[in-house]
Each structure stands twice: as C-alpha cells, then as structure tokens.
Design a protein around this nucleic acid. Sequence first.
DNA 1: ACGAAAACGAAAACGGTTGTCAAAACACAA
DNA 2: TTGTGTTTTGACAACCGTTTTCGTTTTCGT
Lengths: 123, 123
Amino acid sequence: MSTRREAVRRALTGSSGFRSAQDLYADLRAEGSKIGLTTVYRALQSLSDAGEVDVLRTDEGEAVYRACDTENHHHHIVCRVCSAAVEIENPDVEKWAADMGAEYGFTNVTHTVEVFGTCSSCS
Amino acid sequence: MSTRREAVRRALTGSSGFRSAQDLYADLRAEGSKIGLTTVYRALQSLSDAGEVDVLRTDEGEAVYRACDTENHHHHIVCRVCSAAVEIENPDVEKWAADMGAEYGFTNVTHTVEVFGTCSSCS
DNA sequence: ACGAAAACGAAAACGGTTGTCAAAACACAA
DNA sequence: TTGTGTTTTGACAACCGTTTTCGTTTTCGT
C-alpha cells in the first residue's frame, strides 16, 4: 500500500459522509500534501476495486465515496446538504430484491438502494 | 407540445428499456429525422421535469430514460445486457425508507431503488 | 401575411474522469 | 553505496456526456 493511497484512505476515513474525488483532493492539498488529482482518482479506484470503500453516483452523475464501518453489504441514509451518512441494513429489502429478480426470470441479481434526506443538524 | 419533443417521446415509448439520450438521437437520425442532439437533451429534460419519464444513472454516470406505464412512484428491474426493464412496486420498501429516515431524524426523505440482473432472454 | 415568441441545431464550453508519458521514488542485488 | 529494473506519481491532454450560447427557423395569434 503506497503512501499516497494511504493518505487518500485517511482523508476518507476522517470524513463522516460521502466525498467526491475532487473534495478529497482539495482536503489533501489544504493540509499541505502535494498529491495530484490523478493519484486521488487512482487511489479511489483501487480502494473501490478492493471493496474497501462504497461508491455511489449523485443525481448529477458525480461519483462519491465513503469508507464504511462494515464490509458487509449495506445501504445508507445520506444527508443531501452535508452528505453525512448513516449505514443501514435490512434483510427484508435484500430478500425482496432477490425475490423480484427470480419472479421475473432475472439472474445474477444485484441492487442499489439509497435513502436521501436532510439530517437533523441541517434542517 | 412541440413536434420534436413528441418524436423523442415516441422513440422512448417504442423501446422497452432504458435508453440514453445519445441512443435516442441515433435512433431518430437512423429513421431519417434531422433532429439535433441538443433538442433530444432538451426534450428529455422537459419530459423528466414533467414526470413523464423516469431517469436513472448507470454506474458509468450516464443518464438513461424510460417512458413508464404508470405515473405512480415505482422501481425497476433492469437487464444489464439489453436494458429491458420491468416495473415493480412494493409498499413495504416505501415504508421502510420513510421509517429509516424518521428513525435517524432525517426529514424530506426520498429514496432510489433499482434492481439489476440478466433477463431470461439474455442469459 | 406579419411580428412576437418559442423551438431548433451547430458548435463551443463545461466538468468530471481517464489516458499518456516522463520524472521521481522505491526495491534490492551486486 | 551504486546501478538497474519496477512502481508510483503528477502535469497535462484527451475524452465523453451534458449544457450553454447564439443565430436561424418554425410556430402561433391576430
């Protein structure tokens, strides 16, 4: 694990919500790092490939990342103002998605579930 | 409703799955229309604002559109090969999302739920 | 038919992301 | 330590989907 990638992971772990690559780049530069934007993207790509961070897309199509507490499959409630996120799990939803897939003859079923709202401190 | 926008709606209604703006543009040009890409984007934007089509983002960040049978809130099972889609509804999921939001003090809660798989004719 | 308003399309601009490539950092054997 | 091959890095350009701009065309009301 290279130093740069470690720095990106640290920056991500130090934030409570979903951050974009450019956010993290700005954070790292602000704290004096000479890291390049390309490297931030590369680090996030590889952390994501390794399953160490969760990725999702905003409505604007921007990719945002988060270092999650568990490696288990789970979902989030994300504040649309400050992007803080709470991890949530629900076996029923997992089962429902799988059942739906089976019912319509779909194989290799995956799903995305994200809940958005305004968190108590932002409202 | 302008002619061009109607053409885009027709192109969308004639497909069974989610299509990107560029897909629709290609379809329309292929059938002889002299429509411009800009107009396709504009038409999709306005159809989407009017709630007449559903929009979602692929993992690659591309926006894809679909003319749905119902205007009610619903979700989809989407084939990741041919992008054919089945509309699905489930009050439990709706309730769950709302409950989760309330439990963590989030207001103005919305959610996105999409199921992906390989449909029977593509597998 | 006329003028105002809306729609249109080509091309440029934009913004996030990825590719390129030479320089720098590193590993490690001699 | 020095040399050599590998990996990582970052500036910059390229890419791609989308939006903006702006001059032209079409539509609509009168």
